[in-house]
Design a protein around this nucleic acid. Structure first.
Lengths: 202, 202
DNA sequence: GTCTATAGAATGATAGAC
DNA sequence: GTCTATCATTCTATAGAC
């Protein structure tokens, strides 16, 4: 398999070159540790083992790196969101979506905090149209057609609960599968979802 | 009432001068908007209407400002924590603690994200002893003596749910009292707490 | 307690050689 | 695609006058 082909198969975004993907990946790791504003291009370059100029050859600005990194991560959720919308509103679609959101949150727990709470990312989500649409879609899917105050507060709580729990010190030592199973169970309970199967995450 | 006396009564920390309190207050507001790393001393000085040098007269380093700002905010929770520990483990102590945590989170919702998720603040909480103790106490009180995996996941979820919900776009327009009442109700439900009274926040 | 002025380092970003 | 070298700007922090 050619490197280009391998990139196509594994890359998070088809329109990124292999070098760009590598750059966005290490940038995202650094963002998770130090925040976007706490991560300089020098740090990214050092981590890649190249100079700043080389990084600027991949992306014209630092903001472009942030956009690529966030897109890379959100793309993982899009398939789940597509499926949920296709199945339409209802407990089954919501349950399937939650299962995938939880698995993703557990698997990518180091990055969740940055995506949900970093001020620089928040600005991006608010300004970039594609991101706006994505956030809208996710909220809509989580609400499942409901609009009551109770439903909105519940949706807000559950989104934050999942995102925040995976990085919480209290669950730091837990096995990822156990954590995912527990999160799914508690989430179902909280949302009055019947719950199906064992709740295993695989 | 003399200015010094007014400061004593209203200040969040007795050992801060009036000028220091003002500085920490505007700094915290800026931290909430731009993150700690995204807030420069120039921005703080501009907001205060003075020069950087004047700010450096109040605090020797930027970190000292962050420490003071975080202390100021956490102090608000200490009384509630003291009471919870005095009452000892149990549903009543936990319920009272949650009620105060929720009211505080709603009232100070713009700052909650910074305190819970800003990388610079997280570093501080991990390194400064008094902060470590505080976080330990809060976790312990939320667990209420339990140590099971289920209890730990629940505690992690509820802490993040409250903190994250108050800043969530989905509840942006809600009346603070309504939001607090809903949060308390949902939290009690999630934790299997009996719930008492109306859930009103006053 | 505030100011002007500045030191010294780091930042994002660019030009041009290889 | 990577390098060296550099630019203008900003950053934290300090010195010293008022």
């Amino acid at each position: 398999m050619s490197p280009a082909r391998a990139d196509r198969d594994r890359a998070d975004l088809g329109r990124l070159t292999e070098a760009q993907t590598r750059t966005a990946r290490v940038a995202l790791e650094l963002f998770a540790s130090h925040g976007v504003n706490g991560t300089s291009l020098q740090m990214i370059a050092d981590e890649l083992g190249v100079t700043k100029a080389a990084v600027y050859h991949q992306f014209r600005t630092k903001e472009a790196i942030v956009v690529a990194a966030v897109e890379m991560e959100l793309t993982r959720l899009e398939a789940a969101l597509d499926a949920a919308e296709a199945t339409g509103p209802g407990p089954q679609a919501l349950d399937a979506l939650l299962r995938q959101v939880i698995d993703l949150a557990v698997a990518r727990h180091r990055l969740v905090g940055t995506l949900q709470h970093d001020p620089a990312v928040a600005r991006l989500l608010a300004e970039h149209e594609p991101f706006q649409r994505f956030v809208q879609r996710l909220s809509h899917a989580l609400l499942g057609g409901k609009r009551s105050i109770e439903a909105r507060v519940r949706a807000a709580m559950i989104g934050s609960a999942i995102g925040g729990a995976v990085t919480h010190p209290l669950v730091a030592g837990l096995d990822p599968d156990v954590l995912a199973a527990q999160l799914l169970r508690q989430t179902r309970r909280f949302l009055d979802l019947p719950g199906r199967g064992t709740g295993a995450s695989g």
